[in-house]
Amino acid sequence: MSEDAIKMPVDVACILHLLPHRYPFLLVDRVVELEPHQRIRALKNVTFNEPFFQGHFPGRPVMPGVLVIEAMAQAGGLLTQLSQPKGSGGEGKLFYLVKVDNARFNRMVVPGDQLDIEVVLKRTIRNMALYECVARVDGKDVASAEILCAEGKE
């Protein structure tokens, strides 16, 4: 996808084209800001219909922190994919989460919240990308982490 062809917001139909994740594990609904090769801002609407709320926790639903981390990693994957020039061969490559550092959880994420995810590319090293990530709800930090993703071997 060429940088000049990217129109905001990037909707779920485009996200499905760029990421391999599917229900119930696709955790990004929309991309609202993009600076190719630098940063992305994405949204995840958290609804009571999410399957993990059945067991986490009955009567007091809380989005698992590991899924907030996964949503940040998926936003990082979208930053990488949306930054690739169309036809560069980057389409369809799989990237895997290989390391999480400095993870912090400041508040619980509950049904009705909208995760506002900001990911900044700190650096790339060969086939790996290091991202600095923050997830917010109503302008308040709920989670943050440094995430390292690597391109999978064919």
Rank of each mutant, 00 (worst) to 15 (best):
Ala5Gly: 02
Ile6Met: 06
Met8Lys: 05
Ala13Arg: 13
Ala13Ile: 07
Cys14Ser: 12
His17Met: 13
His17Gly: 11
Leu18Ser: 06
His21Glu: 13
Arg22Cys: 08
Arg22Glu: 09
Tyr23Ala: 13
Tyr23Gln: 14
Tyr23Met: 12
Pro24Asn: 13
Leu26Ala: 11
Arg30Tyr: 02
Val31His: 02
Val31Arg: 00
Val31Asn: 03
Val32Glu: 10
Val32Met: 03
Val32Asp: 04
Glu33His: 10
Leu34Arg: 09
Glu35Met: 09
Glu35His: 11
Pro36Phe: 12
His37Lys: 14
His37Arg: 14
Gln38Asn: 09
Gln38Pro: 01
Gln38Lys: 14
Ile40Val: 15
Arg41Val: 15
Leu43Lys: 08
Asn45Ser: 10
Asn45Trp: 10
Asn45Phe: 11
Val46Ser: 06
Val46Gln: 07
Val46Asn: 06
Pro51Met: 05
Gly55Glu: 06
Gly55Phe: 01
His56Ile: 04
His56Gly: 02
Phe57Gln: 01
Pro58Leu: 05
Pro58Asn: 05
Pro58Trp: 08
Pro61Arg: 07
Met63His: 05
Pro64Arg: 00
Pro64Trp: 00
Gly65Ile: 11
Val66His: 09
Ala73Glu: 08
Gly76Gln: 03
Gly77Leu: 02
Gly77Val: 01
Gly77Met: 03
Leu79Tyr: 08
Leu79Cys: 07
Thr80His: 12
Gln81Ser: 14
Leu82Val: 06
Gln84Cys: 11
Lys86Cys: 07
Gly87Ile: 01
Ser88Gln: 07
Gly89Phe: 08
Gly89Ser: 08
Gly90Glu: 14
Glu91Arg: 01
Gly92Ala: 00
Lys93Cys: 08
Leu94Lys: 11
Leu94Gln: 10
Tyr96Ala: 12
Tyr96Ile: 11
Lys99Asn: 15
Val100Ala: 04
Asp101Leu: 15
Asp101Gly: 08
Asn102His: 11
Ala103Val: 14
Arg104Pro: 00
Arg104Ala: 06
Arg104Phe: 04
Asn106Thr: 10
Val110Ser: 10
Val110Pro: 05
Val110Thr: 15
Pro111Asn: 03
Asp113Trp: 04
Gln114Cys: 13
Leu115Pro: 08
Asp116Ala: 03
Asp116Ile: 03
Ile117Trp: 00
Ile117Phe: 00
Glu118Arg: 10
Val119Asn: 00
Val119Ile: 05
Leu121Glu: 11
Lys122Ala: 13
Lys122Phe: 09
Arg123His: 11
Thr124Phe: 02
Ile125Phe: 08
Asn127Ile: 09
Asn127Val: 09
Met128Ile: 01
Ala129Ile: 07
Leu130Cys: 03
Tyr131Gln: 02
Glu132Leu: 12
Ala135Ser: 15
Arg136Tyr: 00
Gly139Thr: 01
Lys140Ala: 14
Lys140Glu: 15
Lys140Tyr: 08
Asp141Arg: 03
Val142Cys: 05
Val142Tyr: 04
Val142Leu: 02
Val142Glu: 01
Val142Ser: 01
Ala143Lys: 02
Ser144Ile: 09
Ala145Asn: 08
Glu146Gly: 01
Glu146Met: 06
Ile147Glu: 01
Leu148Gln: 09
Glu151Ala: 11
Glu151Val: 12
Lys153Ala: 09
Glu154Arg: 10
